[in-house]
Design a protein around this nucleic acid. Structure first.
Lengths: 217, 217
DNA sequence: GGAAAAACTGTACCGCCGGTACAGGAACTG
DNA sequence: CAGTTCCTGTACCGGCGGTACAGTTTTTCC
């Protein structure tokens, strides 16, 4: 059962190709024949790695979710190195996140979580549940940061931390959609920075530095 | 060529069924056979109304976009009746929007614009372009409102009106995704109200009434 | 009320593709 | 060289989108 390295490479290649196709056409329209053609393997080879299309979906989402969580983790870790105060670290992290969004060549390819949720009837409970947990974890990360902030900084106004925690994921998923529909890659970082401005306005002491909401261009 | 009323009813029924299926499974997985079974017509009947599946997609999106635009228009018209000042009218409209979101039985069924954008390779240019125009128009409506506001009210902080205009659509589309994934119908109105709080904080004079960000429950 | 148009039904068929099954072979690994 | 991993080749099934077309019922409108 010891997995070799070559098999893992093929799996990874297939998953990457499948993900691209799913984000562009949806899961049902993503044909196995097309995947194997691009991956340079045969149908039998595909079914050696995945027992059916459901398993492909499962592994694909698991891979995506893990990569996404790692990315966020890296950003917050880096932000913690750069700032001591929770609020400052959060603001730094959001800036790093915005920069990461801007660095995406050809725009963000799309959020698999969103894609799955708009095709939920196609997937089994395992996949749906994985999606739910992924979003919950994502929210929890931001929630923990905001909880830490309110412990040290009184908000200018009474504030619903849950709404604020959800808001960034909403903004990102919504911004990906706007970016794709309008073919404008700048939406993503702009919306992250808008959220950042909201946070800054809420928690910075009155009379502090002005919001960086003004657009560069 | 005089279109009868019965034909229009059947078309409408088919489009409604198709939309539900597309939002739950995606376009490719939405089989014509399933639609006609639910609509109580035959395959021949379907192809009498739509020359192919592409035409179904086109009419479905057109219908959705029109309904959405009308809904927004109604809300703003009502808000204009209730308030004279652009800022107050905008805040009223957002509250009405949040209430409308809360009144949806069984949660929001999903945004067809988002669904289409996550399956763009399935549709022809006409459909893609319709999607683009729909989002652009939506943004323009909010943009016009915000422009009117800034003409009368100086924002507390320098502000990127474009980011702010996009933000509400991003929030809504993102909130629909979160609501679906987490099976929590409260996300939508909460995010609309969070956006409203942001607007209020930005444009209300310093020292004004506190934000209604605190959650009721 | 009757003609014309609209709104379908019924049947038969094609081709593509997802999916399955299974036998066999190459390639890496110890 | 033996055993496992990693595939290939072939054959086949069923479902579905889509087409074609003749016939039938229902609605509309004069």
């Amino acid at each position: 059962m010891a997995r070799g390295v070559k098999g893992a490479e093929t799996r990874e290649r297939v998953l990457e190709i499948a993900q691209g196709s799913v984000l562009a056409k949806g899961f049902a329209a993503t044909s196995i024949e097309e995947i194997i053609a691009e991956a340079g393997i045969t149908k039998s080879g595909f079914f050696y790695h995945f027992k059916d299309k459901n398993e492909l979906a499962h592994e694909m989402l698991a891979r995506y979710v893990e990569a996404d969580a790692r990315l966020l983790d890296d950003i917050f870790r880096r932000a913690d190195e750069l700032a001591d105060d929770p609020l400052q670290a959060f603001l730094v992290a959001l800036k790093l996140l915005a920069e990461a969004m801007d660095d995406l060549e050809g725009g963000h390819p799309g959020c698999l979580v969103a894609s799955v949720c708009y095709q939920e009837r196609l997937f089994d409970r395992k996949v749906i549940e994985m999606n739910r947990v992924a979003v919950a974890n994502m929210n929890a990360v931001f929630r923990a940061r905001l909880d830490a902030i309110v412990r040290l900084h009184a908000p200018r106004e009474p504030v619903d931390i849950e709404a604020l925690s959800e808001m960034i994921c909403c903004a990102i998923d919504g911004a990906i959609i706007q970016a794709k529909v309008r073919n404008d890659n700048s939406v993503l970082s702009r919306q992250v920075l808008a959220y950042r401005a909201f946070i800054k306005a809420l928690f910075s002491p009155v009379g502090a530095a002005s919001l960086p909401l003004q657009r560069a261009a």
